[in-house]
Amino acid sequence: MVGEHLLEVKNLKTTFLTEMGSVVAVDGMSLHVDYGETLGLVGESGCGKSVTAESIMRLLDERTTKYEGEILFKGQDLLSLPEKKMVDIRGNEIAMIFQDAMTSLNPVYTIGNQIVETILTHQKVSKKEAYEKAIEMLRLTGIPSPEKRILEYPHEISGGMRQRVMIAMALSCKPSLLIADEPTTALDVTIQAQILDVINELKKELNMGVIMITHDLGVVAEVCTRVAVMYLGQVIEEAPVDNIFTNSLHPYTKGLLKSIPKIEGDRNKKLYTIEGIVPSLHNIPKGCRFAPRCSFADEQCRTQSPVLKETDGGHKVRCWHYEKIGQMEEKIDVTATS
């Protein structure tokens, strides 16, 4: 590989120490993000996608959380940095936007105050310059008449506007990495389309790397260049975005794609379902974690854990039988068409 990645996570393992024993929320996570690239992190609730993000930012309470592995940001291991250095990076070089903009904004400060606070923390500028910068950022995110908005409080503006404010705040220091944790989940589709557009535009303008965490495969198809699918704390498949949709290899990814109702095509067909529910992190299945819900699972799957194996062109999959499953499905397709 030429050069270094903007962010490279190597074998990250995040363990929560709880009263009921320790829980490994993220287990052996490896991924990388380059400049100007959007990596999608997909999975269902509890799969560890948010914990991965919070580990990268080191937002979790370190008295009850144990990190193992390496998180290299511009070649520097974030996990070994002292907290003071970390403060310089958070919000400055790596910024994060959250799902719920209402609870992430401080209700007793004006929008302007909150953006200015971020700028003043990280940059040596006067208050006046900071305000001008804040107005500029709000304009960039498409907020009409930002000079007036800057004096308003979070409750005075709509959900879509709040998310724009969050983006403005996150990008006010021109970070090189943006982590967006379900930024549009709480928004309506027409507003979601606006926000995704804003994120995409600004990514190009600032040449940022973006990690887009979402459970919505539609959003992934719209904005991501590469996708990592997570299940129970592990990446089970990673591929360029086109491959995920045209040639997914892992039965879980395939199942997810098939179980979404489509906007076109036959609607009288029954929806495909993945049987069962996601097991609890307290008792992770032996062997392949997806085996209990997988219709292709055999003895090997139930006893031995598969590794994340690279097939070709950056496509990685964690499955013992992905080749066999692919062939079997081809056969099914042939018999179905003939």
Binding site: P144, S158, G160, M161, D188, V189, T190, I191, Q192, A193, Q194, L196, D197, D216, L217, G218, V219, V220, A221, E222, V241, D242, F245, T246, L257, I260, I263
Partner: peptide
């Protein structure tokens, strides 16, 4: 509304109508 639904397939590309402003 129909045009702003994100479709989970990269092969489908549509013209999106992005509405201005809020409800």
């Amino acid at each position: 509304l129909l045009s702003s639904i994100p479709i989970p397939d990269t092969r489908v590309r549509r013209e999106r109508i992005i509405l201005k402003g809020d409800v």
